[in-house]
Design a protein around this nucleic acid. Sequence first.
DNA 1: TCCCGTATATCCGGCACCGAGTATAGGGTC
DNA 2: GACCCTATACTCGGTGCCGGATATACGGGA
Lengths: 195, 195
Amino acid sequence: MTFKRTNPLALAVLALLSERPMHPYEMAQTMRERHQEKVIKLNYGSLYTVVESLHRHELITASAVQKAGNRPERTVYAVTAAGTAELHDWLRELIAVPAREYPRFEAGISLVGLLPPADALQVVTRREAAVGEQLAALAVLLEKLAGMGLPQLAWIELDYRMAMLRAERTWLAWFATATREGTVGGYQDWEDRHR
Amino acid sequence: MTFKRTNPLALAVLALLSERPMHPYEMAQTMRERHQEKVIKLNYGSLYTVVESLHRHELITASAVQKAGNRPERTVYAVTAAGTAELHDWLRELIAVPAREYPRFEAGISLVGLLPPADALQVVTRREAAVGEQLAALAVLLEKLAGMGLPQLAWIELDYRMAMLRAERTWLAWFATATREGTVGGYQDWEDRHR
DNA sequence: TCCCGTATATCCGGCACCGAGTATAGGGTC
DNA sequence: GACCCTATACTCGGTGCCGGATATACGGGA
C-alpha cells in the first residue's frame, strides 16, 4: 500500500525531520515553539499514529532508542530519501491543487434562511466583530515576528490568512448591510416566512 | 451525554427533516438535487451513522417503517421539538463563531521555503489558474440558478465562496509576482539555500 | 421470458483520530 | 529529606468516519 496523504501532521513531521533527527515529543515541542500548531493541527495521539505510519512506509527510520536514566525510552527518527521525495511532492500538490474542503461557515450561511432576519443579522454582526479581533491579533503577532528579524517568507501563511480574513470581513459587512436594508435577493419572502 | 456538534451532515439532516419527514436515502437524493453536497460533505456511511446518533439523542424520531413490496425496509424519520431547537442554535453558533479550521493550503504554503523558488513559482501559478477556473465555473452556475428564478438568498453560500476565491486569486498573483521579482522578504536567503 | 444494467436502500468492518490517562524525573521550597 | 508541582515521554481505549459490499426492484431490449 502506498502512503496516504491524509493528515498534514505527517507533512510537518517530514519537514521537521529534514532539519535533524528527533523523537516525537521533541517534534511537538518544536512545533509549539514555532507556532506551527496554529497551521497544522497537533495532538499527541495523532502524532504517534502518524509517526508509526510514516515508519511503516519507510519514509522515516527509527535511528536510535535513547534511554537517559530511567526515563521512558524515546525513539529518535530520521527521514529517508523516499521521505524527502514524499515531502517535496506532497508540498507541491498541496500548493498547486486546491483541495475540496468544507468550511463550517459555508454550511451555516447556506441555511441562514432558516433563521429570522433579525437573528441572522445579529449573528453575522457577531462574526464580523470576531473576525476583526482575529485580524488585530494577527497584526500584533506579525509585528512581533518582524521585530524578531524573521523574514516575510517565514510567516507567509499568516500573510495569506490575513488576506482571507479581510475578504471575509468585507463580505460579512456587505451581507449585514444587505440584510438590514432588505436588499438581499429574496428578502421579502424571507421576512414573510418568519412572522 | 449531550449531542456533539461535530459532523455538519447532522445539520443538513435536521434542516431537511424540518421541511418534511424522510428516510435517509431520500435525504441524500434531495441534497444532491440541491447541490447541497458541495457545501456539506455527504457519504452514505456517515449519513446513517449521523442519523442514528440524532435518533439516540432524541432530536429525531423514527416515525414509520415503510415496506413497499419487498424492498429493504426504509425508516422514515421526523424532527422533534428538541431537534428544531438544536438546529437553530447550532446554526447561530456556526455563523457567529469562527471555527478554528486547518486549510490544507495554509499547511503547504507555510513550508514553501523548502521548495526551490522556481518550483514554488510554478506550483503557485498552477493554483492561480485552478482557482480562476473554479471562479469561472461558479459564475456559470450562478447564472443558471438566477435564470431559474432562485433568489440570491438561496445560493448565498456561493456568493461567499466566490468572494473568498477572488481574494485567494489576488493573493496568489501577488505572491507569484513577489517571487518572480525576488521582492518577497527573505528571498535572497531562500535562493541561496537552493543552489 | 429472460437477462442485465441501473436505481433503491442499508449495513458493516477497518482504521485514523482523539484526548485523557500513566509514570518517571527534575527542581524548588519549607 | 519530605513534599509537590511541572516537564518529559508515551500509551491506550473509545468513537466516528469512510467506502465498498450487499440485496432487492424495476424497466427495457433481444
